[in-house]
């Protein structure tokens, strides 16, 4: 999800009604999957497809090209993280929103590093879900307090384990401040008020923390591919 994708998506979204956002639901449990699909359809979203495992999720997404993929990480026999990476690599205009059980910390973090632009727990209300899908569709990062805690922890882990030989992404002081406030449950508006900055600046800080993490992850993947003699995707190394 580079900035070109967001830039393209924004005018398109502005041109049509918000409710025309197209969605794909990936979850291995039929009760949940069909329930979410129905909830979203009832609220005017266009549910293009559903998938029960990671491989068919990537295949179907390639064909239907939804605006937003709702991704469960706990898929039967396949990895939601790999599917997230596949979708965000192949389809820059498609955003992935992780909708998963709480407590799958490392998986959520890996999915976000693989390119997912947000995370919502399954216990969230329908209103929260609808709001999150809308925001994801326009390219905003859906940052729950839980995700902020995970991202903060990941930056600190990288800072602590870095031997200085490889450059690891760091948070600026302001970004750390913003992330901590998100993790403590403050809304973007409350953070803006407390730090005396604009609401948009808060959003930018939050997105920048994600982008650095995802960029670092792509560089790592490319390096791994080169070191192991695999052909690197030119898009990834760019």
């Amino acid at each position: 999800m580079g900035s070109p994708g967001a830039a393209q998506a924004a005018p398109a979204q502005g041109g049509r009604a918000m409710t025309n956002v197209s969605v794909m639901v990936v979850d291995d449990h039929p009760i949940w999957r069909d329930g979410v699909a129905r909830d979203l359809t009832e609220r005017g979203f266009e549910v293009l497809a559903t998938a029960g495992d990671g491989e068919s999720a990537v295949r179907i997404a390639r064909t239907v090209r939804p605006d937003v993929v709702l991704m469960d990480l706990n898929l039967d026999g396949s990895s939601g993280v790999a599917a997230t990476l596949g979708i965000t690599t192949e389809l820059p205009d498609t955003q992935v929103l992780v909708l998963s059980a709480s407590g799958e910390h490392s998986d959520v973090l890996e999915a976000v590093k693989a390119g997912a632009s947000g995370y919502l727990v399954k216990s969230a209300s329908v209103e929260e879900l609808v709001d999150a899908v809308r925001r994801t569709a326009v390219g905003d990062a859906v940052f729950t307090a839980g995700l902020a805690g995970l991202v903060l922890g990941e930056y600190r882990r990288m800072a602590a384990s870095g031997d200085g030989a490889e450059p690891t992404p760091r948070l600026t002081e302001r970004e750390t401040e913003v992330l901590r406030l998100v993790a403590k449950g403050l809304t973007a508006r409350q953070i803006a008020t407390r730090l005396v900055i604009s609401h948009r600046t808060v959003e930018n800080h939050v997105q920048s923390t994600l982008r650095k993490l995802q960029l670092h992850n792509r560089v790592e993947l490319a390096r791994y591919a080169i070191e192991h003699g695999l052909d690197a995707d030119p898009e990834e190394t760019a």
């Binding site: 910390h105 959520v108 973090l109 839980g146 995970l150 990941e154």
Partner: peptide, 16 residues
């Protein structure tokens, strides 16, 4: 800490 989570209490922790 995670056991303290309820519909009104959100618990955020690192992945490690």
């Amino acid at each position: 800490l995670q056991l303290l989570a309820t519909p009104r209490v959100q618990v955020s922790v690192p992945a490690t």
